[in-house]
Write a protein that binds this DNA or RNA. Sequence first.
DNA 1: TCTCGATATCTAAGCGCATATATCAGGTTT
DNA 2: AAACCTGATATATGCGCTTAGATATCGAGA
Lengths: 358, 358
Amino acid sequence: MAKSPTVYDVAERAGVSIATVSFAFSQPHRVKDSTRVAVLDAARALGYVPSASARGLARGRTGALGLFAFDFLNLLPDAEGMKKDRAAAVVAPNDDCRLFPVWVDEVQRGVQLESFSRGYALMIGGGDKASSERAVTDIAGRVDGLIIFPRTIPAEVTRRISARIPVLELSEPSHDDGLHHVTVDNASGMRQLMEHLLEVHGFRKLMFVSIPNVETEARYEAFSAVLQDRGLEVPPVVESRPGASGVTAELVRNLLGSGSLPDCFVCANDDEAMAVMETLKTAGVSVPGQVAVTGFDGVVAGRLVSPPLTTVRQPMELMGRTAVEILVDAISQPLAPLVERQLPVQLVVRESCGCTKT
Amino acid sequence: MAKSPTVYDVAERAGVSIATVSFAFSQPHRVKDSTRVAVLDAARALGYVPSASARGLARGRTGALGLFAFDFLNLLPDAEGMKKDRAAAVVAPNDDCRLFPVWVDEVQRGVQLESFSRGYALMIGGGDKASSERAVTDIAGRVDGLIIFPRTIPAEVTRRISARIPVLELSEPSHDDGLHHVTVDNASGMRQLMEHLLEVHGFRKLMFVSIPNVETEARYEAFSAVLQDRGLEVPPVVESRPGASGVTAELVRNLLGSGSLPDCFVCANDDEAMAVMETLKTAGVSVPGQVAVTGFDGVVAGRLVSPPLTTVRQPMELMGRTAVEILVDAISQPLAPLVERQLPVQLVVRESCGCTKT
DNA sequence: TCTCGATATCTAAGCGCATATATCAGGTTT
DNA sequence: AAACCTGATATATGCGCTTAGATATCGAGA
């Protein structure tokens, strides 16, 4: 790791000035062919690798996008629990890997691919809750645009960062937050799902299981609206917690005890739904025989559990790609207004609602 | 995106010099409590976000590690084909996501987690074959250490880069390549597998299916050695191509035609193995009834196909984590020698070899 | 009272590159 | 032959930060 060569070294070796070296790389047409060749030869001979720090500083742009992964990866409070549940549901437990891509994985994949194809490098930052502010600020300083997952960063922090670079949150916008947004059509998805449950299956007693937040709220509203439209009673949200399958389990057990099972558990996301199904299975309740269960999101695991989960699939990879697209535009047009793009979702009917494989 | 505030702005607002601002952030003990508070307040008020470019330039280190993802993601020549094969083997085809984490995914996950927990950001670069040299050089300029997947970058390029920063390749070392390496104990894994096949199942006619490269060569050598030790005939490698299931299929069909099926196809990796199984299934040959098949790697898909694949599992997440560990050490001790670390593998006996679920 | 040592802060010099501006050679135009 | 381009290269400055060394301040010891 001897001191690495710089433009000065290359310039000296090629017998030109540093400006010429710089031009040879970034504006080849401005340099005579013969000198350009000489410069590139010298660079190769010396093992010259341009410093992105210097380049970024001089240019005012880094050429990288950022994705803040937070602690989704495996640092979730109950991550261990979730992993085990899901593994148990399908195959033998796995020691050292996440069996299926979850929501963030699929989105990240889209972000990654789209970034590369647009010539941006991708900087992924992460950290636990305690250090998240420092971590996100750190990566914000390294990139030209930043993507963050829903509800991972305090508004105050994102506001600060968005004064410097465009920031996109993968969630419904909250009022005047200064961020770009990519969302999905939660309402329409839930409506399609509800119509299926009410009309095809004739369910009347539905129960909404969820941790309350912006996304699930939109889903619950649609849930309520559909019921109301038909003059059906609207039950309150049954509150759960993400990944806290213990809580969900207890909840389900209580219902079992009181003998008041609904026709169908409409869960705000697939993870909830799978936790509910697991608990029911343990308690000897047949799904969908005695009670139906539906999810929302469309993660891979949902199609592999038994019975396969009826759900509403979000276009996760597309969400990641769209996020990149929006940011790249925002970078090139700093004065353009904030954009909010809503993507369609797709009802995926499998077997947990009572349908049978065709 | 008004011009973002710099140390100068913060310094002015706090009534101190830029050095004090810098110290307040990076060496808090060197400034009086009261001034530090004043500086931090000013920074917050202005929405100050330090520029990583400037910081990196001044410090000579960027605080980021790099991972070059190349085109593994979905740009592989036959990526579409592979995806379909695998999906077809287990569930309905999926439109826009990769169903299971593959080798690189699991390694990347380890890299990501370990980087974060050590306070490094992770820069992921990618590109197709054509632009790979530029892309890898680009990300090399942004990081303090670089991890590359096997056989993705020409030796000449890695050599150049490794003169500037430590570079680790996830493969067996080739002579004096100037890179750090994380490897797995291919030989031991293959030996364990072979002993199982020969002693438990009593197979005598084995066939090694592979694309030849450094990794699979080590596996083939162990394969040969075990056979030789027992005085059995050593068949030549049956050459295939990664992901080119068409080729593998043809190969298998030829064998079927000539009626010379072995007792067991020992495949150099899981993808090959699954392609072989698929072809056999299509041809109406029972696995493991008429012929056994084994893989190598231990990807998730292998446990979900039918029959579940007997294989040798690499500790992929650990490989990623180890790579980071080695690089971080190398960064702090630039003069230390190159390290090569070999990790253990684990024989995973499932059903494709003829064993039955216990 | 003067000196010395801490402590707190500041001054100033880069880090490696991009680029606006200046320079220069060689050819055109008038 | 003077004035004027044009293309190729050089000079010089600044990007925002870190940090070695200079300076200032204050109290303690002589």
